[in-house]
Design a protein around this nucleic acid. Sequence first.
DNA 1: GCAGCGACGTTCGAATTCGAAGCAGTAGGC
DNA 2: GCCTACTGCTTCGAATTCGAACGTCGCTGC
Lengths: 167, 167
Amino acid sequence: MPDAPPPSLDPVQLGAYFTLIEVTSLLRHAVEQQLREAGNLSYVQFQLLARLGDSPTGSHRMTDLADGVVYSRSGLTYQAGLLEKAGLVVRAPSPDDERSVTVTITDAGRALLAEVLPGHIEVVSGLLFEPLSPADVRALAALLAPVRDHIRAAPPRSAASRRRQAQ
Amino acid sequence: MPDAPPPSLDPVQLGAYFTLIEVTSLLRHAVEQQLREAGNLSYVQFQLLARLGDSPTGSHRMTDLADGVVYSRSGLTYQAGLLEKAGLVVRAPSPDDERSVTVTITDAGRALLAEVLPGHIEVVSGLLFEPLSPADVRALAALLAPVRDHIRAAPPRSAASRRRQAQ
DNA sequence: GCAGCGACGTTCGAATTCGAAGCAGTAGGC
DNA sequence: GCCTACTGCTTCGAATTCGAACGTCGCTGC
């Protein structure tokens, strides 16, 4: 390709982009406070517990967790260490693959999750959903889902060079 | 109030909420890489420069910047220090209020912003807007704007206690 | 089998982040 | 004019975050 067409965003796009970032920043900030007060959890920790609690088996591999919450591997190691020290999860080598580590939520983890969840939901309800009608929420979900799939599918920018580095 | 009505989110709401968080996490991650490569800027730094560049005067007060990008004051002090050391902004005491500090973008700051912006826009276009039609984008903006206003208007959860801390 | 390549998780060091405490400067009541 | 409360920013210490380097394990071709 010669060069990209004048890469600019029209005002509507810019507004949507900025508002998206702003809304999530604000929401995340508020939620973080609530989680800290209610259960001394950081947002990442909550996300991890929530994902584990949602899983049928109550467990996930480290890498899948990191990917799921968009976190660095080393960061996840650190957080998993904290959660384990707090007795909220357990780490064990995978049975089938000796390399990978399986993280499993404990009963204490589920209990804490259950304790924190109502307040969390209340905050999200009050801030994010309060100004939105049920139809709005459906529309929002319908708009964002394809975006998520698209970004997930997109090669992570650095992969391009990696894939064809061997010419 | 006796107690809140069963605070639960229906599956659609949950999906919308999770997708919202996921999309912005992914987007932010991708953008962060691009900014790092293109101009050695963190996302916060870019946001700050962008806000300053957008301002008619090219400047803002520290507090307003921190509020705008949803950042802690101390964090902003740190970042402003970095940007100033890099010659991208200048800090000066406000003329009218001796307490506050006015941050102003320099020509070098504008130049860097201009240099980084096309790539930034390209990433956002390719990831966020690629799966969305112009109508979708309008809808998204229309959905999120009220949410932003609502959250901005909401009392910051901790303000209640601060206001009445003196008994 | 075994050499080489790739995936998984951890360790390490450096940079960033936040809240609490502190230091001015400002506004209002008297 | 002062005293008190409040705002604006910075400093400080502790916690978190990431990428790079590392050790280990699994998979392929031979």
